[in-house]
């Protein structure tokens, strides 16, 4: 019975086996892009609605060479980073205080959890009313987005530290500061790093929306401006950049994660 299934499986994989394994992932995207290019080249699809991949690549290069792309890119990155740092640090600090202190948990945590139910992006109009469309409201918006994942995960990380380790630290007569630096922070690090990753993701998402709601610079502005003039290829370039940077920042934190958490036994397996 097993061999029969295995045989059927082998037959099913037959034509897949002819292709080397690492290439499998690329088969469908390459086929789609090729079809898209051919259909566009033959004039089957409107160039204003769906420019060919080649046109998009050309636009990418020309925007990159003219320095326009780089300029918008720098502005966006700066915004996202400052918002992330502001919100992430606040989240870390509050997460540490609610995680370590019973009283802080009882008073602050329920209010913060209540605030967390408000959809973040519905606050954009309010922020525009309060602070205008300037830098300040954007950075505040991003930091608010970055705050919650960081806060929740820091808190969770601290609370999931093994109680037995606390007992050990008591035997070693750790001071309060030593306890935090040498036990709690390392033990909560996996969760904190997860918080950093989620925070970065949210700040990037909020940046996208904040920039499309109204700015005069940044990748989001570039997209919105291009949309107004129906320059679809530039819209695509902007979206691709958003995707690449989002992916890259995630990978960087993952790399950091695997470096910093190398001491964990479960991690390698």
């Amino acid at each position: 019975m097993k061999s029969e299934i295995a045989a059927r499986k082998a037959a099913g994989q037959d034509w897949l086996r002819a292709v080397p394994g690492p290439l499998h992932a690329w088969l469908v995207p390459i086929a789609i892009v090729a079809l898209w290019q051919i259909a566009g080249g033959l004039g089957w699809i409107s160039a204003t609605l769906l420019p060919t991949p080649l046109t998009i690549a050309k636009q990418f290069v020309s925007l990159g060479l003219s320095g326009e792309l780089w300029e918008h890119f720098q502005i966006s990155i700066l915004r996202a980073l400052s918002g992330f740092v502001l919100g992430g640090l606040t989240g870390l600090a509050l997460g540490l205080s609610t995680g370590l202190g019973k009283m802080a948990e009882r008073t602050l945590d329920p209010s913060l959890q209540m605030l967390r139910t408000v959809p973040l992006l519905s606050l954009i109009p309010l922020f525009i009313l309060w602070f205008g469309i300037g830098e300040f409201s954007k950075i505040l918006m991003i930091s608010l987005g970055a705050f919650f994942p960081m806060y929740v995960n820091t808190f969770l990380g601290i609370r999931s530290v093994d109680v037995k380790l606390y007992d050990v630290s008591r035997i070693f007569q750790y001071s309060k500061l030593q306890l935090v630096i040498r036990l709690i922070i390392p033990a909560a690090l996996p969760n904190i790093l997860l918080g950093i990753r989620l925070s970065l993701g949210v700040s990037w998402l909020v940046l996208v929306v904040a920039e499309m709601m109204g700015t005069s610079a940044g990748i989001g502005y570039m997209i919105q401006d291009a949309r107004a003039y129906s320059q679809t290829d530039i819209v695509f370039v902007g979206i691709i950049i958003f995707a690449i940077v989002g992916k890259l920042s995630d990978s960087v934190v993952r790399l950091l994660e695997s470096k910093l958490l190398r001491w964990r036994e479960t991690y390698k397996g």
Binding site: W204, L205, V208, V209, M212, G220, I223, Q224, A226, R227, T232, V235, F236, G238, I239, F242, A243, G246, K247
Partner: peptide, 10 residues
């Protein structure tokens, strides 16, 4: 990996 809301203009 595409940020979900970046597609909105498209």
């Amino acid at each position: 990996t595409l940020p979900h809301l970046a597609i909105a203009p498209l």
